[in-house]
Design a binder for these strands. Structure first.
Lengths: 178, 178
DNA sequence: TGCTTTCTTGATTGATTTAGTATTGAATGC
DNA sequence: GCATTCAATACTAAATCAATCAAGAAAGCA
């Protein structure tokens, strides 16, 4: 039901694989800001002798300095990072690296982890046929959390990812095209 | 290393849980366009007697008509949908609903499923400390695919989601806050 | 007290994207 | 020929992204 093998004897059913370029949204989009935030946090987690100066972080990770300044400010407000002004100043983590997950950082820079039409999955109100969609979006977010809530800064610095994450990255087509 | 319990004896380490409102990007963001596309496709999959007219779909799913027109055009170009002009015209799926997954639809409306700074996870080039991050983003995309590549239009119309998806949605905090 | 270094804050920018709307045109069936 | 329906393109207003700029405040040192 709902599917007609060839509507009106589709005699020119070409592939039309076009899909030129054009950027568009991407369902999962880690913004430059979020990526920078994570990398800056890794730098702080690995620092042998904090606090680390803004310019040091920016250089080590190739992040635009003034942009990094904004990002560190937000992370400080969120309580992930501490700062110290003055000649001996800089930034340091406010919590142990084993206690900071990627999800913690991404929630600071990107707000909520997941949204549909800017609404959180659990707040959606679908009616009729599309009702089961809500459960799908909730499950999708849950699947992301199995990665983002598990990986800590300590894991990243040690280069030792949780088994579950390694398994996912090792799954058949994980490194292929789309 | 990298973490100082209280920088300079942090005597005002308040929570500062601010984080007012402001929208921002959201790591996973299903756009209005993508959501509309999926719901329109569900409508087509469920239609007892295709083709279905654009206005019918728009009304059934409360989608702005002219916007839906664009979306259906893209889906047609991508080969997901067929159309028929004229008084008896409308749209129909071009493939069996069991052969169209959510990932298929989202790739049409949103381009690639996942990106970091607009680069596909497997094309990232991290150096030094942030090197392990690439594996994490690849794993994150893989985890999303475990949902999006499994759910078909037929599943949605039948209201019967794959076991794996139901399990994810039933996991402890799946329906909570963030 | 100055002076330098560093973080702090808020405003501003330009390019791009989102979510639509409008217009004109082409096919189909009666 | 005419109503109905899809088709293609171009436009727009608002928001967002990735940055940059400027003025200031705190800490340490001479």
């Amino acid at each position: 039901m709902g599917y007609v093998p060839a509507i009106a004897a589709g005699r020119r059913g070409r592939a039309a694989l076009s899909r030129c370029l054009g950027s568009e949204s991407h369902v999962m989009r880690v913004s430059a800001k979020a990526d920078y935030a994570v990398r800056a946090a890794i730098e702080l987690a690995a620092a042998p002798d904090p606090p680390v100066k803004r310019d040091q972080i920016a250089e080590a990770q190739a992040i635009p300095v003034k942009f990094l300044e904004n990002i560190l400010g937000e992370m400080k407000h969120a309580g992930l990072v501490q700062s110290q002004r003055g000649a001996e100043g800089g930034y340091a983590l406010a919590r142990d690296p084993t206690e900071i997950t990627l999800a913690d950082i991404l929630r600071v820079t990107d707000g909520m982890l997941a949204s549909v039409h800017d609404i959180r999955p659990q707040d959606l109100r679908y009616e009729g046929l599309s009702e089961p969609l809500q459960t799908v979006w909730v499950a999708l977010r849950a699947s992301m959390r199995t990665v983002l809530e598990e990986v800590t800064l300590a894991d990243l610095v040690a280069g030792r990812l949780p088994r579950e994450v390694k398994d996912l990255a090792a799954s058949p087509d994980a490194w292929n095209s789309q």
